[in-house]
Design a protein around this nucleic acid. Structure first.
Lengths: 210, 210
DNA sequence: AATCTTACCGATCGATCGGTCGCTATTGAC
DNA sequence: GTCAATAGCGACCGATCGATCGGTAAGATT
């Protein structure tokens, strides 16, 4: 049986990360285990660890990978929309769709990881905190544009909008995974639409998971 | 050195639980460890485990203890208020105060535990899910009363109110512990007041941690 | 006073944790 | 054709995990 070629190393690296992200979304970043990862991938523990060095580096790479998925699923689809309320609504749409399609098997990775690490100092927590701050800043920026364009009531605090959107997403995630409430994304979408003050009921498509 | 008297067993039991709740709010219910608990309490692992039998029973007892604290801090203070919007506002007040006073050192225990266990079957998850359902039902009941008394707009879905209040609390908890945002309870209180449609700005007291 | 109950300890169990080591097999560059 | 670089393995490390064991000392019961 031939050994894996050097060119396959990147593929192995990606496979480990993919499995790691799924595992961590269910078991948590700390519950994630090198041995479990090795068993699932039919590798040795040393083979897995060789790609990252330490568990903390593995955790960081896992967080970065999950962040990329979140950005692709929620941020990117909304970039074609015009800045301001239109883009906030597009983000809300993509966000609820993302939560409804179970992109991560254990629920929203960012919410789970943030809640798990919000009390422990370290690089993982810092990475999560910075990512969440950046995301909130993105939301607040469009909220600010919406206020300036008078798409939102004058005097609206952009940070209140960002906070509210994030909170609703966390609530949807909990309702969906703790209670198995399949209608949670719809409820969240209604709440978001109310908060963003869309006067006409905009029809929203909830894509199915293929 | 005299052995502990039998009458002290209940006190020991309570001391273990108290430490367990604090530990679990930081490290998580799974990160909670018998050995760590024993070290902190200057007991043997066997002595700690003897009170609960298995780790799962310890986790369940810890959840029940934390639930009692949450009820005492958030539910009880609002029971003197009249049913309907007044009580919802009282709950909102107590809830934000609870989050601002860091009743649990690692943030809201229920949020952390629910997020940690929402993907793993078992009795702990069931207990958490049932508790959250009951709490949401309590909120929805007062919301229903408020709608009936026309304190909230006709046609308001009581479950939307319960969902929204819970989501805001989760958002406040994250902002406070992931970002160290001390003003998060105030922001949450503003959001809650807006959602509950309090027309006059009601002054809210944020008690200090003694 | 004799006996039972029980809270707790110290020792120990097998399993698993993250991590290190030397080694092999293969590749890509020369 | 030769050789350095490296992906990955297998064995192993000390530490710690949850859990079990027999033993001990105190209180409660009689």
């Amino acid at each position: 049986m031939p050994r894996r070629s050097v060119a396959d190393a990147a593929r192995t690296h990606a496979a480990i990360l993919e499995r790691s992200i799924d595992l961590a979304s269910v078991e948590g970043l700390e519950g994630l285990t090198i041995g479990r990862l090795a068993t699932d991938l039919q590798m040795s523990k040393a083979g897995v660890l060789g790609h990252f060095g330490t568990k903390e580096e593995l955790q960081l790479a896992t967080v970065r990978g999950a962040l990329a998925i979140f950005a692709r699923e929620v941020w990117e689809p909304a970039q074609e929309a015009a800045p301001g309320r239109a883009r906030l609504l597009a983000i809300a749409d993509a966000w609820m769709s993302y939560l409804g399609r179970d992109v991560f098997p254990g629920g929203c990775f960012m919410t789970a990881a943030s809640t798990e690490f919000d009390g422990r100092p370290g690089r993982v927590r810092d990475t999560l905190a910075r990512a969440n701050e950046r995301w909130m800043a993105v939301l607040a920026a469009d909220a600010r544009a919406a206020v300036k364009a008078e798409e939102l009531p004058r005097g609206t605090d952009p940070q209140d909008i960002a906070f509210g959107m994030n909170a609703i997403a966390m609530g949807v995630n909990q309702a969906r995974h703790l209670h198995g409430d399949a209608s949670a994304p719809d409820r969240g979408w209604r709440a978001l639409r109310t908060m963003l003050g869309a006067p006409r009921a905009r029809r929203r498509a909830l894509p199915r998971n293929p």
